[in-house]
Design a protein around this nucleic acid. Structure first.
Length: 905
RNA sequence: GGGAGCAUAGCUCAGUUGGUUUAGAGCAUCUGCCUUACAAGCAGAGGGUCCGCGGUUCGAACCCGUGUGCUCCCACCA
């Protein structure tokens, strides 16, 4: 079979994915083997996968494939997240732009139909991307956070927590998204520094109050500073610090809110910073969390001057219906005209923006549903602190995890949206709440409550009536809101195995807890912490053993990937251009765990080159398949045996290193190790060492061994680059099995002595090549080598390799060349290169002098240590011994070099 | 304002409880090669005040203090 010049990934990748699927390699059923379970962090169905997902899925696939080749029953569950607010915002936007439909004009059912269509479209794109990337997920297990059983699980959990008293309904200050018209959790708000203005506004004294100000002031007003003049209509008090002498005399006085002349009292609270602004704070409980708290403390009313969409409400009295930012400008103008605006200052402030719609978030009083977090947080914290769950990298995230859980606040879980699980709460005409899994159950509860009420009233009326008229049909209305998307995601590792809806099924018992969670560090609180809470609360067991945090993917300038910057590449394009293996390689090679990844296409280029290197190694070995020596191996490499022993040891050494690195989740380093093993040790050294001269046959035993080595390298690389490795595995030799399921054998112990010989040989070759280079000896010009050594025997097995690698036609030991030659020093041995060509003695001298200088400096530093009494007294014996050896080695080398220099003259 | 992390070659990063040389890798750079697996390649080379300062130690890239710079998280003073 003719192999193409370069590796072409496209059809190969398609072919093998289909093959693996047809063999059901990705499918998993509970059996006797140990389980290795991964649940995919379900991507939001808001759009297509970006580079962050690519990194995540690649890491998971590497772990899954490695586990599969190590005898585990691997189950990787794919899926997607309905992403309540994010998706709803996209659908609303799409409807408006593409169909001219306003959500207001749709019924809930109609809207959900569109939303499901959207989910179908983007969900499928996401799944096809996961497939193209080569992810070995079990496609029979695709889960979605709004699947029927999943929906039921969420409802069940809500009811359960409500019954336990862990869910309550209450009026709180929440973050309000005026575009999506919904509450946001604290985590959904992003703060940005913005230039704003601080306005100083006069509040006049109520004219009905007389002579309250000290005569020295002589003015009947006080000045407050605010960034948000449009909220003054919601003011209910002015507040000063009780220790602020400037204002203590104002106690009991009343002032007027400008423009609307509403009377507000002066109160005192230590919360107020005397040194900020004027030292007086206006209290607007409806629109600021701190004001709200002060309001509660001082029993002040709440005046909400904003509508849900961010326009001013009737309570504002003026500018009703105008957007808050428009109203701000107008109010400032009006204040200025009335002479009530004292001054404006430039001021940098941090404003909260909605993560989903990017509008400025308004603090707003609202009745919402909350989860009490304190009791849930405790066990979740313990799991991590006791290292029952291991976080990687540990140092970086354990502290933040601990801090968040120790200071956790109640979780606002209701959202004023349609896309999501509708809150299972019903209200009767009196506003009484019934929380139940179904409407029937809610009605049942209502009946019980109302019949109790009837019997209560019977007792109190003390009128004995016997005719029990049937209870009237209840008019229950269901809560319109849906649940926060994370209130469904936190059940993910459990409910993908139906562990909430059927708590004792075979699957959940086998696959749970899952093995490892791979996710971005940005959702440690949103998701990771809450999954641990859910695991502990609903199954009394952690959801996963390990958590691997990937960093954020940035562009090569360190900027976040974003659509507006246009620096977020399209995954399918990249796969098309480089191949999935190269994309996986490129993204993994530069991605240490937990560090941000600076994405640069040049690393994909490197991956592509690596593919080609493997391809060419295949071509070389294939050539030998047809051209093997018969009989006693005439023309074969005599030193194949030694090369084989060396590579066997090198391979074992690397296998052990890679295993350790993989167990520590240091995947990037593991890949680097494999890359270097294949490119340098296998291709540049081993294959060159055993390669017969052109046209000559190879020794069959060497050939067979080489194929086995190649197999093992492919196996090591397969988790990282699955397609090309499977392809080469099959092209290398006719096979009945597939690489993807080939089980790792135990790694051997490397032979340390032979590795040392290998290092020596490599150093020798490099030094001689360097000398050739520096002396302008063309590769084709043959040389004779004269080696001065006390250990001639150790050279015997290396001789043939050495002469081939440096193009030497003769190697002589402990003889001096008669003619002038190039002299170099490698280790403790002096080597002469003799050739017919002119040699440049100046270049040699230069090199030798440089080495000499280095060695003398080195010797001084060693001597300094050894002549230091304290060092000799305190250092460990091995360390001293080592220094002595360094000293004698250096002295020996210096002697040889000086001798050489003398010879050259 | 509170906390965490980082700072090593042009770039991205390793560097294990302080001692294997005067610190390593990949990429990039430079030099020479179209040598029959591979120019998407081969061979070789150059490149570092381990952020500054101070301390502990016989010995510091590593430990301690301090300064500077960057990143992130939390809080959210009108």
């Amino acid at each position: 079979m003719e192999l193409s010049k370069n590796y072409i990934p496209g059809t190969v990748e398609e072919k093998w994915y289909q093959h693996w699927m047809s063999k059901n390699y990705f499918k998993s059923f509970p059996d006797e083997r140990p389980a290795f379970t991964i649940v995919i962090p379900p991507p939001n169905v808001t759009g297509v996968l970006h580079m962050g997902h690519t990194l995540n899925e690649t890491v998971q696939d590497i772990l899954a494939r490695k586990a599969r080749m190590s005898g585990f029953n691997v189950c990787w569950v794919p899926g997607s997240d309905h992403a309540s607010i994010a998706t709803e915002a996209k659908v609303v936007d799409m409807l408006k732009k593409e169909k001219g439909i306003d959500k207001k004009n749709l019924s809930r059912e109609e809207f959900l139909k569109y939303a499901f269509e959207w989910k179908e479209k983007y969900g499928n794109i996401i799944y096809s991307q996961i497939e193209k990337l080569g992810c070995s997920v079990d496609w029979d297990r695709v889960s979605f956070t709004m699947d029927d059983h999943y929906y039921k699980a969420v409802i069940k959990v809500f009811v359960d927590l409500y019954k336990k008293g862990l869910i309550y309904r209450g009026a709180r200050m929440i973050n309000w998204d005026t575009a999506a018209k919904t509450a946001l959790s604290d985590e959904e708000v992003e703060y940005k520094d913005v230039m704003g203005k601080l306005y100083y506004i006069k509040y006049p004294l109520n004219p009905s109050e007389e002579g309250v100000l000290q005569s020295s002031t002589a003015e009947d007003f006080i000045v407050i500073a605010t960034q948000r003049p449009e909220t003054i209509m919601g003011d209910v008090a002015l507040c000063a610090n009780p220790n602020d002498d400037r204002y203590t005399h104002l106690k009991g006085k009343k002032f007027l809110v400008p423009l609307i002349n509403k009377e507000v009292p002066v109160i005192f609270d230590e919360y107020v910073d005397k040194d900020f602004g004027t030292g007086i704070l206006k209290i607007t409980p409806a629109h600021d969390i701190n004001d709200f708290n002060i309001g509660l403390k001082h029993h002040l009313p709440v005046v909400d001057t904003l509508n849900e969409d961010g326009t001013l409400s009737e309570a504002a009295q003026i500018h009703i219906g105008e957007d808050r930012f428009v109203a701000r400008k107008k109010i400032v103008e009006e204040l200025r005209e009335k002479g009530l605006l004292v001054k404006e200052e430039e001021y940098t402030t941090r404003l909260g923006y909605s993560q989903r719609t990017n509008v400025v978030v308004e603090p707003k009083i609202s009745t919402q549903w909350f989860v009490k977090m304190k009791d849930l947080a405790k066990p979740a914290l313990d799991e991590v602190l006791t290292e029952n769950i291991n976080i990687h990298p540990k140092d970086k995230f354990t502290a933040t995890y601990k801090y968040w859980l120790e200071n956790v606040k109640d979780w606002c879980i209701s959202r004023q949206l349609w896309w999501g699980q509708q809150i299972p709460a019903w209200y009767d005409e009196e506003g009484k709440i019934y929380v139940a899994e179904t409407e029937e159950e809610a009605i049942g509860q209502w009946s019980i409550v109302n019949s109790e009420k009837n019997s209560d009233s019977e007792i109190h009326n003390s009128s004995f009536t016997t005719d029990h008229s049937p209870l009237p049909t209840p008019h229950l209305t269901r809560d319109e809101d849906v649940l926060d998307t994370w209130f469904s995601s936190w059940l993910w590792p459990i409910e993908v195995f139906n562990g909430i809806t059927q708590p004792d099924n075979k699957e959940i018992n086998y696959y749970y807890p899952t093995s490892v969670l791979v996710t971005g560090q940005d959702i440690i609180f949103f998701w990771v912490a809450r999954m641990i809470m859910a695991g502990m609360e609903f199954r009394n067991e952690k959801p996963f053993n390990d958590v691997y945090f990937t960093g954020m993917v940035r562009d090569k300038l360190g900027r976040k990937m974003s659509k507006s910057l246009g620096n977020s590449p399209d995954l399918l394009n990249l796969i098309h251009e480089y191949g999935a293996d190269a994309v996986r390689f490129g993204i993994m090679i530069s991605s240490p765990a937990g560090n941000d990844l600076l994405f640069d296409e040049s690393s994909l280029e490197q991956g592509k080159h690596f593919n080609n290197k493997l391809w060419n190694a295949l071509k070389l070995v294939k050539m030998w398949e047809e051209n093997q020596a018969v009989g006693n191996g005439e023309g074969a490499m005599v030193n194949g045996e030694w090369a084989i022993q060396w590579f066997e040891s090198r391979l074992s050494e690397a296998r052990n290193e890679v295993d350790i690195l993989m167990n520590q989740f240091r995947l990037s380093e593991a890949l680097k190790t494999i890359y270097s093993l294949i490119w340098n040790d296998f291709c540049s050294w081993y294959l060159e060492w055993i390669k017969p001269e052109f046209g000559k046959p190879i020794d069959p035993a060497v050939y067979e061994k080489t194929v086995l080595f190649f197999d093992e390298l492919l196996q090591m690389l397969h988790p990282f680059m699955p397609f090309i490795t499977e392809e080469i595995y099959h092209l290398l030799k006719g096979r009945n099995d597939d690489l993807i399921v080939k089980q790792f054998s135990a790694a051997h112990k490397p032979d340390v002595d032979i590795l040392k010989s290998g290092d020596k040989l490599k150093a020798l070759i490099t030094a001689i090549r360097d000398a050739r280079n520096k002396n302008n000896l063309k590769p084709k010009e043959s040389i004779s080598l004269f080696i001065e050594t006390t250990d001639e025997i150790s050279y015997q097995p290396l001789k043939n390799i050495l002469s081939k690698q440096v193009n030497a036609d003769a190697i002589l030991f402990n003889e001096k060349p008669v003619e002038s030659s190039v002299t170099i020093v490698v280790g403790n041995e002096k080597i002469y290169l003799l050739s017919d060509a002119e040699t440049d003695t100046e270049a040699q001298k230069e090199k030798l002098n440089k080495d000499l200088q280095y060695l003398k400096g080195f010797l001084i530093s060693v001597d300094r240590k050894l002549s230091n009494d304290k060092f000799v007294q305190n250092a460990k014996p091995q360390v001293i011994e080592l220094e002595r050896k360094k000293k004698s080695d250096a002295e020996e080398k210096i002697r040889i070099i000086e001798q050489s220099l003398a010879t050259i003259g």
